[in-house]
Simulated assay, not measured.
Amino acid sequence: MDSKTAIIYPCLWEYRLITDKPQGLLDELPGLLAPLKYQVCTKNKSAQGKYTSLQLSLVVSSKQEQHALFEKLSNHALVKWVL
């Protein structure tokens, strides 16, 4: 029996973006994600205040799109980590 939960696309997907320049990243997201519609909100700061996490929510239409967005976000200069 497969213990994985099936993901049915399209679906709402969330990425947690960790950055040390939150405003810069917020300014870049419209160009990076166009024409996709998304919501983003600031979540937490690290204990020393150096890093901020942003929660990015958007609808992905396929597993391929989900992975492509992960790669695109991971490779952006202002993103330290994507969870």
Results as ranks from 00 to 15, higher is better:
Cys11Lys: 07
Lys45Met: 08
Lys63Val: 03
Leu54His: 02
Lys21Arg: 13
Leu29Cys: 06
Val60Pro: 13
Arg16His: 04
Asp20Phe: 03
Ala34Cys: 04
Pro10Arg: 01
Asn44His: 14
Ala68Val: 02
Ile7Val: 15
Lys37Gly: 02
Val60Tyr: 12
Asn44Lys: 13
Cys11Thr: 15
Lys37Ala: 13
Tyr51Met: 10
Pro30Thr: 06
Trp13Cys: 15
Leu78Val: 01
Leu78Ala: 07
Glu71Arg: 12
Glu14Leu: 11
Gln39Arg: 14
Lys63Trp: 00
Met1Val: 08
Pro35Ser: 12
Glu14Asn: 13
Ser46Gln: 07
Gly24Thr: 00
Tyr51Ile: 03
Lys72Ile: 03
Gln39Phe: 05
Thr52Leu: 01
Asp27Ser: 15
Gly31Asn: 14
Glu65Asp: 02
Ile7Cys: 05
Leu17Gln: 05
Glu28Tyr: 06
Leu56Asp: 08
Gly31Leu: 04
Ser57Ala: 15
His76Ala: 02
Val59Gln: 11
Gly31Tyr: 00
Lys72Ser: 08
Leu69Arg: 14
Thr5Val: 11
Val60Ile: 15
Val79Pro: 03
Ser61Gln: 14
Leu56Cys: 01
Val40Leu: 05
Gln23Val: 10
Lys43Ala: 15
Val79Thr: 05
Gln64Phe: 11
Leu54Arg: 02
Pro35Val: 12
Leu36Ala: 13
Leu36Pro: 01
Val60Trp: 12
Glu65Ser: 04
Leu26Phe: 12
Ser57Asp: 05
Gln66Trp: 05
Ala77Gly: 02
Tyr51Val: 04
Ser61Cys: 12
Leu83Gln: 08
Thr5Arg: 09
Leu56Glu: 08
Asp2Lys: 04
Thr52Met: 01
Ser57Gly: 05
Ser74Asp: 08
Leu83Tyr: 14
Thr42Leu: 14
Ala77Lys: 13
Ser46Tyr: 04
Lys80Ile: 03
Leu56His: 04
